[in-house]
Design a protein around this nucleic acid. Sequence first.
DNA 1: CGTGAGCGA
Length: 279
Amino acid sequence: MSGKKLLGIPVLVQPSEAEKNRYAMQQAANAMGGTLTGQDVYQRLYVGSIHFSLTEDDIRQIFEPFGPLDFVNLHKDPETGRSKGYAFIQYKNAADGKQALEKMNGFDLAGRNLKVGLVTEKSSSMNIVNLDDDDSSGVGLTSLSRTELMQKLAARRTDMLEEEHEKDTQPQLPLAPARPAIPTKASRTVMLNNMFNPAEETEPDWIQDLEADVKQECEQYGRVEHIHANEDSLGEVFLKFDSVAAGEQAVNALNGRWFGGKQISAVFVPEAIYDAKFK
DNA sequence: CGTGAGCGA
């Protein structure tokens, strides 16, 4: 499966890591006098290298296709609410967890390779029942991640429609993971965020100047057919390229990059939504 | 300045 492309995204499978963890885990389990059975270890998984813009809900969407989850626990900095990039998840059934580990370890999600492994248990407190009230998906969002969230919600809707469509051909356990609802649906229409702060702008024509600059800068990825900077936002710039490939290049090149002291994000916008916005 | 991988309250 290594090197295979899923959703136009390369998949890297790293069996050595998983294998290492498995050995360590089973030895630990044996040493502990059999508190953990060979099945149990697969229920709880460590998921690392998660893109920082993904929420607990996103993680759930990505891993739930393998089977029902008890909880998803994405670790965040309590101060800022920012993701720390790793999570613990628990499946109701160990067999599902095994599938998830094998299929999702190394999965290139939003530009990062997911690390999925067995949990290295802490010595004490191992049977905390962590019930997860999952309606906290909107807490501590910066204005930047809020727009990304809206992005993802929009993407999720179309995903659900597509999944409905595929339902009759889907087996119980998908061979390949169902399309995760991630902000990575490639399109030629793109939104940049945090490109400017209107409060800091003084020139009367700053918005036009900015559009011209951004357009010129972005022509290296492909022909820019349309651009619009939203002056009532915290730096939104919408771009339509001439091809999906160009949009992908732009997102890959620009997302996370720094631009005049601000870190910008670049996400795909479904073309239909884009068109509806600007007509 | 810049989330590097990271095994939790």
